[in-house]
């Protein structure tokens, strides 16, 4: 599904990713871990097409096509979803309306008719029930004044609405208390099936107790320095990143 080959990327002339290679198949869950500043979030932004991140060399194929040729909007429409580490507040834009716009953009792209607010409300309500979200999420402006945990839930709600092929969740666990973490993780597990894939970017092991990864990769200094199964996460939890980064 996704093939990243020797990806290099820079922000404002400073190279952050220094040769990442990673292959992800349908139905897989990959955890990307690593210390702060290692390049984890940069990888998420590069894959989703953030304009500030320049790809200096390398290749990314998504479902056999060159992903780097596509704009952020086009990448979303082909099924790439990023759950933001810091979801942006959009004052004055109703959250339900924002979600409907995103949903309709997909429908239009598939040559289908848009849904009206009433029909969309049914779709939205079902997903909100699944995530245990209150009605106020519909009425408020998108992320505006949301707590950290509320913002993260709202990201997962969007994921549920958009049904992406590949989801990249950037530090989705940060800011969530234990209960919220469980709800969010349950939601993600329900959404993840055999036809889609998941990249979990996280600093801590705790998210991986709820969403079981098939593979764990450790990024440091802009490179993947170790890959393994889910037991690698436990080692990291026990020993920190130092034993890997210093050994490297």
């Amino acid at each position: 599904m996704l093939e990243i080959k020797d990806l290099h990327s820079a922000v404002e002339g400073i190279e952050i990713l220094k040769g990442i290679s990673l292959t992800i198949k349908k139905g897989e869950v990959h955890a990307v871990m690593g210390p702060n500043g290692s390049g984890k979030s940069t990888l998420a932004k590069v894959l989703s097409g953030h304009p500030a991140y320049e790809v200096t060399s390398g290749e990314v194929l998504f479902q056999g096509k060159n992903l780097l040729d596509l704009s952020a909007e086009e990448r979303s429409l082909v099924g790439i979803f990023m759950g933001f580490q810091y979801p942006v507040e959009i004052p004055g834009v109703n959250n339900a309306e924002f979600l409907r716009m995103a949903y309709n953009a997909r429908l239009l792209n598939e040559g289908k008719d848009e849904v009206d607010p009433l029909d969309f409300d049914d779709i939205l309500q079902e997903k909100m029930d699944m995530l245990g979200m209150e009605d106020k999420y519909k009425e408020r402006s998108c992320n505006d004044g949301f707590s950290g945990g509320e913002k993260k839930k709202n990201e997962i709600l969007q994921m549920a609405i958009l049904k992406p092929v590949l989801s990249i969740l950037d530090e989705t666990d940060s800011g969530l208390d234990i209960d919220a973490l469980r709800i969010v993780a349950d939601g993600v597990n329900k959404l993840n099936g055999d036809d889609n894939a998941l990249i979990l970017i996280t600093h801590y092991q705790r998210l991986l107790d709820h969403i079981k990864p098939d593979f764990v990769h450790v990024i440091s200094g802009g490179k993947i320095i170790k890959s393994g199964g889910k037991e690698l996460a436990h080692e990291l939890e026990a020993q920190g990143y130092d034993w890997l980064t210093t050994a490297n």
Partner: peptide, 25 residues
């Protein structure tokens, strides 16, 4: 730019994003 990227990442065009933000304002 971050707001616009947020819209675009959800498949909403830049043009619609600006219109929506301005209309909200």
């Amino acid at each position: 730019e971050e707001q616009l990227f947020y819209f675009e990442q959800r498949g909403i065009s830049r043009e619609n994003a600006i219109a929506t933000i301005i209309n909200g304002f």
